[in-house]
Amino acid sequence: MRRPWMLIPLILFLGLAGLFLKTLYDKKNLQDLAIDPSALPSALIGKPVPAFALPSLDEPGRTLTEQDFRGEVALVNVWATWCPTCRAEHAMFNKLASQGVTIHGVNYKDNSEAARRWLEELGNPYQLNVEDPQGSLGINLGVYGAPETFLIDADGVIHYKYIGAVDERVWADQLGPRYQALLEQASGGQP
């Protein structure tokens, strides 16, 4: 006769595996476990763009600061030429800029000559473009990697952070309505 006590580890393993699978496939738990990487929280929501003094990509010799990001509701897009997702979203930023959306760029950990060639080739949607070769501004913004886009008000306060490519859907569902609401707020409620 076999020794039944030798089956105890197998029975325990199968019982735990069954419990794990039941929990994993329970619809309620699946919704609780769903993670949207574009919705990672930012400690800077409600706070001003961090202080910085970095060169302008578009105007060599000019230094840009956080003060340059004030005066208009704007998107601040963290981008780089080494980022394939940035290339994918670039046409959308050109389209938004042509529609009057104010966009500032932060060229993140990139080569400035390559960045200038990129903008000559693909178009430049940015009203201001900060060179951040060491990534210091990106670190202070809490950037995980490019692309990331921040929505700021006319006082330079960050209201929203989006991680990933901005496309028509993201603009229509997330950034566009928030941008419009900030514009209306800045104009005293006038659309």
Rank of each mutant, 00 (worst) to 15 (best):
G61K: 01
S98W: 06
S56Q: 07
A43C: 00
V49W: 02
A53T: 12
L182Q: 06
N94Q: 12
G156D: 12
I35P: 00
L151N: 10
Q174P: 00
K47P: 01
M92R: 14
R3C: 03
S112E: 14
M92V: 08
N107Y: 08
I35Q: 12
R178G: 03
P37N: 05
L128F: 13
S187Y: 11
A74N: 09
T149L: 05
S42C: 10
G138H: 08
Q67P: 00
L137D: 06
L175T: 08
A51H: 06
V143F: 10
R178F: 06
W5V: 15
S56N: 06
P84M: 00
V170C: 03
T149I: 09
V170T: 09
P50M: 14
N111P: 09
Y144S: 12
E120N: 12
V170L: 04
P4E: 10
S98Q: 15
N129A: 15
V170I: 15
D132N: 06
A91M: 03
G135R: 05
G164T: 03
A165V: 02
A43T: 10
S42W: 04
E113W: 04
P147R: 08
D173K: 13
K22E: 03
P125V: 09
P37C: 04
V101Y: 02
A146H: 05
F150N: 06
I35C: 00
E184W: 13
A146Y: 05
Q127W: 04
G142T: 06
W118V: 00
L7M: 15
L14S: 13
V49I: 12
F93T: 11
I103A: 06
A80C: 09
T85C: 04
I45R: 07
V106Q: 12
T102N: 11
L44G: 02
L54Q: 14
G18I: 03
T65S: 15
K28Q: 11
P50W: 13
C83P: 00
R87I: 04
S112W: 06
L175G: 06
N107Q: 05
N29Q: 09
L21W: 13
K28E: 13
A181S: 11
L119D: 02
S42K: 04
W118F: 15
R117Q: 14
I11W: 11
I11S: 08
W79Q: 10
Y160R: 03
K95E: 13
Y162S: 01
P191A: 01
R2M: 11
I103L: 10
L119R: 01
D110E: 09
L7E: 13
R62A: 14
K47C: 02
G100Q: 09
N29I: 01
W171P: 01
Q127L: 14
K95H: 11
G100R: 07
P37K: 02
Y160D: 03
Y126K: 05
P9R: 07
E148S: 09
E66M: 05
S38D: 00
T63M: 11
K22A: 13
A39G: 01
L54A: 13
L7S: 13
P9I: 13
K22Q: 09
L54E: 10
Q134K: 14
A154Y: 03
Q31N: 02
P125G: 06
L57V: 15
A186P: 00
W171A: 07
F20Y: 14
G188Q: 04
P41V: 09
L182V: 04
D32R: 14
R70V: 05
D36P: 05
E59S: 11
Y144A: 12
E168F: 01
D153V: 09
L24E: 12
Y25S: 02
H104A: 15
V73C: 04
V78H: 12
